[in-house]
Design a protein around this nucleic acid. Structure first.
Length: 562
RNA sequence: GCGCCCGUAGCUCAAUUGGAUAGAGCACCGGCCUUCUAAGCCGGGGGUUGCAGGUUCGAUCCCUGCCGGGCGCGCCA
């Protein structure tokens, strides 16, 4: 719909008299059209005349008049006005919006999708928690934002791969294995012989018990059977990793999130990719030795200090496999890669990009993209919640899902801009009342479904042909407001992808639900007259469809009754 | 001290990425259920967008400097 307005303005621009504007200036202009905030300004507005003012050395209003005069006729547009400093305001004909109903009902669940990604390969890596414990709220935010983003990008035509990267070897995992081993031997955190910095959570006991019982655990990407031999640290390690990965998978499934690829950090070593990366960096002359360590001159690529790659003890620092990993992503052919991470890891951004530039592998400078979410605090009864029964030291994702449900948890974690810190109010998320935006939106959907049920029961079966013949009867201000809201959805889906901000979807859904509730309240749908009745049912159906499509992008269900 | 993010109504958050008179919900006050779900609708009060400058037709948004909060500054990951 917006595209049609842009096309009209482009025509007008092309027809503008040559003495008004030079051809180069004309070609350089990127026509901007926006939805108006204020109904008095029409439905769409363009600042084109103001943008031309400088190159044309004319007053904006004078240019606006010339543009409007050159505008081709269109049945979409009822009238055009020039306002304020030189805005061109378009008032659309009601039929332009009514026609959107046909489109929505015709394309159904594909409404709002666009092909701009053109099937190009995009990878989004998120959660990427190490298998040392249950997922916590922060991972939950990553899962909610990452998965919604993946869905939004798919809706914009990208071929999306969801990837989970984790460390299955190294110091942390060794510490995990030692902790489980201690538990296998009946040693607790307060006892003699408990490993230094061991994992103290209760769940370690569960892992130990399962290992001693020779259970078989099956995670999405691996499985392992406990040997029951408390002296076999290697077996314990494999088992613990598989066990905790399975726990995470269960959490993620309960959250409605799944991954296409699980990538093990250890594979970068066994496949020689770490060594290859180091060799290449040395060959490119970006390294030097100092104090027995090998350094990368990341300062050549915007970092504030150089970074150690190989420690004096011969081991690599974490960022070397990180760079190797991203080189691997690049080689797998992902034109775009988005890393969704907690902001506490923001310092890796510069480092990884610097490492990739130093490889001189033809990787673009700003690649990959990062979406960093800020910290989450959980509140209950006006106080910050810090403890979990399961993990002991933090609130787990499972705690939240159990307590407030999947839909509310996903909504709350994805509905805010990742950039800002998030306060998760358990009392609000739990409340099944008008306090809760999730239910507000879902309720709108349930109402649509209820209308359809009632229609069936009253013998008012929906007749689409008759509905389409009477769309012109949807002419009251509230119906038109709802139609306008519906037609905006594709633009929101596009904006969410452009800005990598899935919270825009949630924001929009609230507004759409509001428009529907308002219209529903003033306009009875199941009236006797079949023409208007069917038209209103069509509008309800279209609303239900868009609510479903939008909720699906957030991974939130659209219940048929509440 | 340096770097990144944030600062908008009493609280939690928006603001179509530089647009016109900064919007929602909660909380507070008032109205609407014999009619399709009141988990709803309508109305009211509530703001110097942290502060001070700058850029321009126009700034919550961009730039500079302060103030406040979070995170990070390891041969940990």
């Amino acid at each position: 719909m917006k595209a049609s307005i842009i096309a009209l303005l482009q025509d007008a621009l092309d027809r503008l008299p040559a003495d008004l504007l030079a051809a180069e200036a004309r070609a350089a202009i990127d026509i901007q059209v926006e939805r108006t905030r204020d109904r008095g300004h029409g439905d769409f507005a363009s600042n084109l005349a103001m943008m031309l003012a400088r190159p044309a050395r004319r007053k904006p209003r004078e240019l606006a008049e010339a543009l409007v005069a050159a505008l081709p006729a269109s049945e979409l547009v009822a009238r055009v006005e020039i306002a304020g400093p030189g805005f061109i305001n378009f008032f659309l004909a009601p039929r332009a919006f009514a026609a959107e109903i046909n489109t929505i009902l015709e394309v159904g669940e594909r409404y709002g999708r666009n092909p701009s990604g053109a099937g190009r390969k995009l990878q989004i890596e998120f959660v990427s928690a190490n298998p040392t414990g249950p997922l916590h709220v922060g991972h939950g935010r990553g899962a909610a934002v990452g998965d919604s983003l993946a869905r939004v990008l798919e809706a914009n035509g990208w071929d999306v791969t969801r990837e989970f990267y984790y460390n299955d070897a190294g110091a942390q995992i060794n510490n995990l294995a030692l902790s489980v081993q201690a538990r296998c031997k009946g040693i607790g955190p307060e006892d003699e012989g408990w490993p230094q910095d061991g994992y103290r959570g209760e769940y370690i006991k569960d892992v130990a018990k399962a290992f001693m019982n020779r259970e078989t655990v099956i995670a999405d990407d691996q499985s392992y059977t406990g040997t029951g031999d408390a002296d076999d640290l290697e077996a314990i390690r494999h088992f613990a990793v598989a066990y905790l990965r399975r726990e995470q998978d269960l959490d993620l499934k309960a959250f409605g999130v799944s991954f296409d690829v699980f990538f093990l950090e250890s594979s970068l070593y066994t496949d020689g990719k770490v060594e290859e990366t180091v060799r290449q960096l040395i060959a490119n002359g970006h390294t030097y030795e100092k104090d027995g360590a090998l350094w990368l001159k990341t300062t050549d690529f915007g970092d504030d200090k150089d970074r150690v790659m190989r420690k004096a003890d011969g081991g690599y620092t974490y960022f070397v496999p990180d760079v190797a990993y991203h080189l691997d992503k690049w080689r797998r052919g992902f034109e775009r890669v988005i890393n969704e991470q907690g902001a506490d890891h923001h310092s890796t951004v510069t480092r990884v990009r610097a490492g990739l530039q130093a490889l001189d592998a033809g990787i673009p400078k700003g690649w990959p993209d990062y979406v960093l979410h800020q910290m989450v605090t959980v509140m209950r009864g006006g106080e910050e919640v810090k403890l979990s029964k399961r993990a002991g030291s933090y609130v787990t994702l499972r705690d939240l899902i159990d307590e407030v449900g999947r839909d509310a948890t996903r909504w709350f974690l994805a509905a805010r801009k990742p950039d800002s810190q998030l306060v998760f109010d358990i009392d609000l998320a739990r409340s099944q009342s008008n306090d809760n935006p999730v239910y507000y939106v879902q309720y709108a959907h349930a109402r649509v479904c209820s209308l359809l049920r009632q229609a069936g029961e009253k013998g008012y079966a929906y007749d689409q042909a008759e509905a389409f013949a009477h769309l012109h009867t949807l002419d009251d201000p509230h119906a038109l407001a709802l139609l306008r809201e519906l037609s905006r959805y594709p633009e929101v889906v596009e904006a969410a992808a452009d800005t990598l901000e899935p919270h825009l979807i949630a924001q929009y859904l609230r507004e759409l639900a509001n428009a529907f509730h308002t219209w529903y309240h003033v306009q009875p749908v199941l009236v006797e007259q079949s023409g208007p009745r069917n038209a209103r049912l069509a509008l309800s159906l279209a609303t239900g469809q868009v609510l479903r499509n939008g909720l699906d992008l957030l991974g939130v269900s659209a219940p048929e009754r509440m």
